[in-house]
Simulated scan of single mutants.
Amino acid sequence: MSYFIISQDERFVHAVEPDGISRAVPRELLTLERIGEMDDWVLQFPIKEQQRLQGGLFVDFIQHPVTLWSDRLKSLLVRCSKKLKFQPVVLTDLKRLRQEPYWLMAAPEVHCLSNESEFHKDGSLKRPVIDERMAGLQPMMKVGGIREDLFIVSLGVAESILRRDFIGVRLTRIEGIYEENGGIA
């Protein structure tokens, strides 16, 4: 099965970035087991000042400082996988009096990196290689066992994303191997 990394397209240099979200949303709550702890929270964040001055673009996928999914992209993902859980977030451009809904997402965390994956000296991921046997048939998952938030989607989900006019979403094919008994079959 083919998999793709979903990331923010950096060609959109004026994409909005929420201010203060990384301090307000603990990373450890972004799991399937714990995301419900934020059910009563009101999560509303202004966009960074520089983007307000430049007319920030509300893209469909915001990767930093916390991964956020647009309302449109979330609507597609819930049709592709019933295992995803979401929490609403509102991003506000105070200068233009504009608010946009976004979503924090918890996806199944799967330890699916092959021994062929490469890491930098600091432990960050350099070249991911997916063990397709470990990934199974998940349409969407978060790669477990690494520092980064790396979300991957199956070919079917990637094709669904590409058929729509999403802005700021990049899909990169990830190398995959099928390991059996520690070797490549």
Rank of each mutant, 00 (worst) to 15 (best):
Q44E: 15
K142E: 13
G144R: 04
R173C: 07
H14Y: 06
I6N: 00
S81R: 00
Q51D: 12
R173S: 13
G55N: 11
R72N: 14
L113S: 09
L73A: 10
E179K: 11
V143F: 11
Q54D: 12
L113A: 10
D19G: 03
P88L: 07
N181M: 09
E118D: 08
L150E: 08
I62A: 02
R164T: 10
V143E: 07
K95G: 04
A24Y: 01
L68T: 12
C112R: 01
D93L: 10
K82A: 14
F12M: 06
I174E: 05
A135Y: 04
Q54G: 05
I146T: 04
M38G: 07
E28L: 05
I152Q: 11
L162V: 11
W103L: 05
K85D: 09
L53H: 11
F86L: 00
I152D: 09
S114M: 05
F151A: 09
D122N: 15
K48H: 10
I130P: 04
K126D: 12
P139Q: 02
V129S: 05
K121Y: 14
K142A: 12
G36F: 00
S124V: 02
I167N: 06
L29C: 09
P26M: 04
C112M: 13
L94D: 10
V153M: 05
R163Y: 06
L155F: 08
L94R: 14
F151T: 12
F119V: 10
K82L: 14
M134G: 02
P26A: 08
D19I: 05
R163K: 15
T172E: 15
T92K: 07
V153W: 11
G123Y: 02
L97M: 14
A135G: 05
F58E: 09
C112Y: 02
